[in-house]
Design a protein around this nucleic acid. Structure first.
Lengths: 184, 184
DNA sequence: ACCGTCATGTAATCGGTTACATGATTCT
DNA sequence: AGAATCATGTAACCGATTACATGACGGT
């Protein structure tokens, strides 16, 4: 049993395994695509390698079909459950990183007006998408999911507000005024 | 000249090189720590490898001291400038990912009340930090930086609002109701 | 019977993170 | 002159992304 490091991806998988009872990577892929992937994207190939990693660390069990597709089915172990519970109970995760590419461009000297216009469009679309999802949430969806969606909506609103304001300001391109004020 | 892929990190380095005229990795490190690192963190070792990569791709030039520390000094090339300009002008970057660990925990079944309480503290602290930075912005700082800071402040406010509201709601732990409704 | 699409997976690569390491400076 | 801290860099590992690949199945 190797000593593996648990990343957010690990906990996503553990959480889904716990919720589902058991799952193949493909199941995980479906679930992620339909839910959590909206605010925490995971590549599908990760949903093959990560459960295998978890199994190596003793956090999950595998069982493999002997015939046909030889699908692997994963199940969370007690050790996995413990790790997940401990992570959930840890109330001090690192704070959010904003990491918005538009903001980065702005910072690095992009012309605000066209950038802001584009960003407004992008974020409006995302906002509408979220609101549609929110309106169509079926019964039985876990409350955490709905709350996450609401958080997403609130932040998209804020982005729209922010970029709209910037678009209306009509400044010229951000000057790169740091130029020359540092020497090696 | 290899064919390298340009990542956000690449553009950060290119942008800083353009602004500074020339820089050593250590200069970059300082600049990042003091400014852009607040919303787009980059490991310092990346500030050694990334400029080297850019040089391999023809986007930057290196010059190395022959004596003493043998520091490497990088300078953006015309090719780099073009790539940077093209990236800046591209108005359709992928939209923000929220990627908030607290939200992820909530989604994966954490008990909302204590989580929210902790998150409120974290985000309040970050908010205060940003507001202090904002109050002390010296002359000559590029406007993009200030605007980015303002965006950060707005989102931190939103997070505080969100978690405070959740903290006041007093729900029980989010039920993982998806349990059992999928089969392999 | 063929074709397209969904299902299901592996391989290769690389960016990013973590850890390690040592030379200068500054302070006492 | 010794300790602490800043400056400056390299090495190793690994998670994540990208690309590739093939089997099943439904429709015409």
């Amino acid at each position: 049993m190797d000593d593996i490091r648990l990343t957010p991806t690990s906990f996503v998988v553990l959480g889904l395994l716990e919720a589902a009872g058991e799952a193949t990577p493909y199941d995980l892929k479906q679930t992620v695509a339909a839910s959590i992937g909206n605010f925490w994207p995971i590549q599908h190939s990760q949903l093959y390698s990560e459960p295998a990693r978890l199994a190596r660390g003793g956090f999950a069990d595998v069982e493999r079909e002997e015939t046909g597709r030889r699908r692997r089915t994963y199940r969370i172990t007690d050790r996995g459950r413990e790790a997940l519970a401990a992570w959930r109970a840890d109330v001090h995760p690192e704070p959010t990183e904003l990491r918005d590419l538009g903001l980065l461009k702005l910072f690095l000297g992009a012309d605000p007006a066209p950038l802001a216009a584009g960003q407004v469009k992008t974020h409006r679309a995302k906002l509408e998408e979220y609101e549609a999802m929110r309106a169509g949430v079926p019964e039985g969806v876990p409350p955490g999911m709905v709350i996450a969606l609401e958080a997403g909506i609130a932040h998209e609103r804020e982005w729209v507000r922010f970029w709209e304001e910037l678009a209306s300001e009509r400044r010229g391109p951000a000057s790169r005024s740091a130029r020359g004020d540092r020497a090696g």
